[in-house]
């Protein structure tokens, strides 16, 4: 992503590229065979290339808006998503437990893996030391309001 002060700000060329990529994905949903898709993708690229040299920003944003409108009206109801991507079938199927769950283990269970938990305590200390070096020590303020 571009280095912007706030997230969500995009340049015009970024928006055009995003529109182009989404159009290609939409074409992929309609034209399944790879060779047919490739032909249609080349045609689409030609449509984009016709307006690539427009220097007037007002016309350019108008064209972009029309393009977005046309894509929305022609989008496929069942887009062709990869399984592990967000919106696909297998997204987030296996639950990854967060790391702090390990701290809640019973001491008897923890005693089955003594070296790992020793190293874990060392790591926690190192992490706190790193944080305090970066951001300073925590002030003693009132713990209750």
């Amino acid at each position: 992503m571009a280095n912007v002060p706030f997230l969500g700000l995009k340049t015009h060329s970024q928006k055009v590229c995003s529109l182009f990529k989404r159009t290609l994905r939409n074409l992929e949903a309609f034209y399944d065979r790879r060779n047919v898709y490739r032909y249609q993708a080349v045609l689409m690229r030609e449509r984009f290339d016709k307006n690539a040299q427009v220097k007037d920003m007002r016309v350019a944003t108008q064209l972009l808006k029309q393009g977005e409108e046309e894509l929305f009206l022609q989008q496929h109801s069942i887009p062709r998503k990869f399984p592990l991507s967000p919106g696909g079938v297998a997204y987030e199927r296996v639950v990854q437990s967060p790391d702090w769950v390990l701290d809640y283990w019973h001491p008897l269970e923890k005693a089955q893996y003594p070296e790992y938990f020793k190293r874990r305590e060392e790591r926690k200390k190192e992490f706190i030391a790193m944080w305090e070096k970066e951001y300073g020590k925590e002030e003693k303020k009132d713990q209750h309001h």
Binding site: F30, Y31, D32, N35, V36, Y39, L73, S77, I78
Partner: peptide
């Protein structure tokens, strides 16, 4: 699916999204 013809489902977009869902 052929290179030279438009997709059959794209031609009748409204009808196919009605029947698809």
């Amino acid at each position: 699916m052929n290179i030279y013809s438009m997709n059959k489902y794209l031609k009748s977009y409204n009808l196919s999204s009605f029947l698809c869902l």
